[in-house]
Every structure is written in structure tokens, then in C-alpha cells.
């Protein structure tokens, strides 16, 4: 049976020496400044929150617009196809898509499965809307397929706060997909918080890689 070894590394007991630099706490004047500072910060935060809400609103509006545009285009294409079919006297044939091969096609937008976020944010940036829309289309064409959206965070900060933030990230992708017409009951949004980092470095590039939602097709990867 393996022994447990408990080593006390000696000589490092710095006797008679306070090791912590405690910042000086000021009196009333400092207190006053702190209160003003707090108020200013609270206002800044409020402004930021409003901005984030506005951006979310804007994204929802764009997604709605995209959905309308697609519906119109689809209707247009359908009527064109019907006319064409009538003209040809044939049947409107449409190839049955092989779901897995479409997902595996590296040229397809469907091969992109990740949405990235800014620090402490969960709104889907506009540059990812085409990826989300491609998955929404695919899911509408393949109505039996269910997906998971897995939200992730970088390692900094609170484990639990990051778990909640990762859930918001996953939920934001789920909401974008449902706005585009995918039934909510086919999407499971889960959070891994900071627990499953894809990049293990401790630099901004790694952190950015880990602030991410992944669209996962169980059994169809």
C-alpha cells in the first residue's frame, strides 16, 4: 500500500515578518470618494447593461428579419419550382440529403460548430449569425435530429458564476435557433462552465477559444 508522505518544507518560516502589504484605508475623505466612485461605476454598469440589452434586441431583430427573408425566398423558390415542374410535366424532385455527409462536408457552413464570445458576455456576435442560420436550416430539413448546445467559459473567475454564464451562452444559441424556427424541444442547452477548456494555455488567445458555445450533433459528428 502506498505511503502518504507529509513533508514540511522548513526554513521558510519567515519569523517576525509580516508578508502582506495591506493597502492603507483612508478616513472620511476617502469614504466620500469611494461612494462617488461606486455611484459612477454603478452608472457605467447600468449603461453597459442597457447597451447589451439593446444589442440583444438588435440581434433578435436581425434574426427575425433573416427568418422573414428566408421564408419569402423559400416561398419564391417553391413557386418557381412548381412552375418549373408544371412546365416540365414532371414531379418536383428533391434529393434526400444524407444528414451525416452534409455535416461532414468541410466546405459546408455546417462544419463550423462554434460560436465565440467576448469576456463576461453571452450575446451571439453578428459574425456568427450565418453559422447559426445554416444549422437552423439543416435542423428544419432534418426534423428527427436533436442537438446539444454546450456553453463554455475561460478559466478566470468563479467556477459557479462561469457555470451560470456558460448556460447563458448555450441558451443564447438555442434562442437564436428557435427564433429561426427550430423547435425548442429538439435543442438541449447545457453548460460546462470553465470545466472543459479546449485550449489549455493561459493567454488571451486560449481564453478566447474557451469562451465558446459548441453545437453538438450526438451520433452524427
Amino acid at each position: 500500500m502506498k505511503k502518504l508522505i507529509f513533508l514540511v518544507l522548513a526554513g521558510v518560516l519567515v519569523s517576525g515578518c509580516a508578508t502582506q502589504d495591506v493597502p492603507e484605508q483612508g478616513g472620511a475623505a476617502v469614504e466620500q470618494r469611494d461612494l462617488l466612485e461606486s455611484k459612477r461605476k454603478a452608472e457605467e454598469e447600468e449603461a453597459r447593461r442597457r447597451l447589451q440589452a439593446a444589442e440583444q434586441e438588435e440581434m433578435n431583430r436581425k434574426l427575425d428579419e433573416e427568418r422573414r427573408r428566408r421564408a419569402e425566398a423559400e416561398a419564391q423558390a417553391k413557386s418557381e419550382a412548381e412552375i418549373k415542374a408544371l412546365n416540365q410535366g414532371g414531379v418536383n424532385e428533391r434529393p434526400i440529403s444524407d444528414a451525416s455527409s452534409a455535416l461532414r462536408d468541410p466546405a459546408s457552413l455546417l462544419s463550423k460548430r462554434s460560436v465565440y464570445y467576448d469576456y463576461d458576455r453571452f450575446d451571439v456576435r453578428e459574425e456568427f449569425s450565418t453559422i447559426v442560420a445554416a444549422h437552423a436550416d439543416f435542423l428544419q430539413e432534418n426534423s428527427k435530429i436533436r442537438i446539444r448546445v454546450e456553453g463554455n467559459c475561460d478559466e478566470r473567475g468563479s467556477t459557479e458564476y462561469n457555470l451560470a454564464l456558460g448556460q447563458r451562452r448555450a441558451d443564447s444559441v438555442k434562442r437564436a435557433l428557435t427564433v429561426l424556427g427550430v423547435p425548442a424541444n429538439r435543442i438541449e442547452a447545457v453548460s460546462f462552465g470553465e470545466e472543459k477548456p479546449r485550449a489549455t494555455g493561459q493567454d488571451e488567445d486560449s481564453y478566447a477559444e474557451n469562451r465558446r458555445s459548441d453545437i453538438v450533433y450526438p451520433g452524427l459528428q
Binding site: 502506498k2 508522505i5 507529509f6 513533508l7 514540511v8 518560516l13 519567515v14 517576525g16
Partner: peptide, 17 residues
């Protein structure tokens, strides 16, 4: 499985001991 050892290292002390 066998557990690895936790090692405790003191890196500072109280000023009056």
C-alpha cells in the same frame, strides 16, 4: 487507487509567535 501526498509549505508566519 493510492492517493498522492499533499505537501504543505509555510511561506509566511505571524509577526508575534
Amino acid at each position: 487507487t493510492a492517493r498522492a501526498a499533499l505537501t504543505i509549505e509555510i511561506i509566511g508566519g505571524n509577526s508575534t509567535q
